[in-house]
Design a protein around this nucleic acid. Structure first.
Lengths: 223, 223
DNA sequence: ATACATATTTAGGCTTGTCTAAAAATATAT
DNA sequence: ATATATTTTTAGACAAGCCTAAATATGTAT
């Protein structure tokens, strides 16, 4: 019934939706799933027929409630198992993902909830990503405007306060996406612009206006 | 590569081999796997080509070393997970099997060995069945001759000391198989015969000679 | 607006593991 | 020893997921 392949697709679509806000493209899914676009098309038809997604040919994909529920449950399981592997079995950061990728497909509601309890109802996984509770609700994380960060602080982009078409276009052009990690390298008082490093890579200067409109949360990620 | 279906077949064959000593029949496997005999035949051909089993048409099946290794690893995982579910997540007896049936197919050597350590290297699972160690060796269990049991004691048949063709035939005819559970109901001194109840069902009178040749181990199973 | 490039879908095939129905081998009973 | 019953295998099909190659849409640049 609930094939783990379908779950993987729904999870991928969920993850990608969070970043692109419009429909998710076939090729984006293909890249993430490490498969061919034609295979994705096949699967999208199936998921659409089963009521998991909204799919219109050539138009990309959005999740239906039902699909989102499945994705969130899988993410919950994945992240709880990661906590288990790290805190109970002493796995290191780089070892947990691969195994959790398998464990996330075990189907037993009782197992997940018992594990959650056993682990002490953790709110975030070892990467700092939030773990949805048994009702699928994510723990609210502290939201801060980028301009309020101090030099040297690290954060993750979690939202935009002004979402005009142009602004989003702009963000996309400079590769600032939801989930992007950033570090404040310098703040210039005279015009309130900020220099940041994105995802440990290139450095970008952001204007006062932009900084005001970016919501971030502190990145507790130790890595 | 290592499809979980193949693992399930090898495990089934392993379990059935332990009881029948001769080759395992297609229909026995089909029954255990809850599938059709024709499907089993297909799979046996594949497993044979891959060197997991010895398969001769119409003659039944035995495991090759390679197949036995796979089966034992799966059994090790299954039983360790059962311990985990019982002792750490407070699952009850009847709930563990189904979930362990899924968990046993997770492929990560490090996971299994870490779990083993985390659980304190248990020697038996919650059903009292032995857990092979990481080298595939089963913990040696205390072997006793049936005639040395006292009235009221319970045991499991683990071997025969005399394995003539007729003796094995006899055991099969009275449904005394390896793994059969028995309880000593009465012992008759005058001819050293023993009355036992088999698998909680029918009662059988065993002669002195038979008792001397049956190896059992005490049944610590609380059920 | 047209031509080119890119993204997406379709068509047809492959593998794994399953099934049913029919054929072949083995086992059993007289 | 022969007929009957049972077990096992073969043949042919199907669904899920994947692939390659070709066709079709969409996007972009002039």
């Amino acid at each position: 019934m609930n094939s783990s392949t379908e779950e993987d697709y729904l999870k991928a679509i969920y993850m990608l939706s969070a970043q692109h806000s419009s429909g998710v493209s076939t090729s984006a899914i293909a890249e993430r799933m490490e498969t061919k676009a034609s295979s994705v098309t096949d699967m999208l038809k199936k998921l659409s027929e089963k009521g998991f997604i909204n799919y219109v040919k050539y138009q990309g994909v959005t999740l239906q409630q039902k699909g989102s529920d499945v994705a969130i449950k899988v993410i919950r399981k994945h992240r709880l198992w990661e906590v288990f592997l790290c805190t109970k079995l002493n796995f290191t950061w780089d070892e947990i993902h691969e195994v959790a990728e398998q464990l996330e497909h075990i189907t037993s509601v009782k197992l997940v909830d018992s594990l959650d309890q056993f682990l002490g109802y953790p709110k975030v996984d070892p990467h700092g990503d939030p773990i949805p509770d048994k009702n699928g609700n994510f723990h609210k994380i502290k939201e801060v405007a980028l301009r309020d960060l101090k030099v040297g602080e690290k954060a993750v982009l979690i939202g935009v306060r002004e979402d005009s078409r142009e602004f989003l276009k702009y963000l996309e052009s400079i590769k600032l996406l939801l989930g992007s990690k950033m570090e404040v390298l310098n703040k210039f008082e005279f015009d309130e612009s900020v220099l940041i490093k994105v995802n440990g890579g290139n450095e970008i200067m952001l204007s006062s206006l932009v900084c005001k409109n970016l919501s971030v949360t502190y990145d507790k990620n130790k890595k």
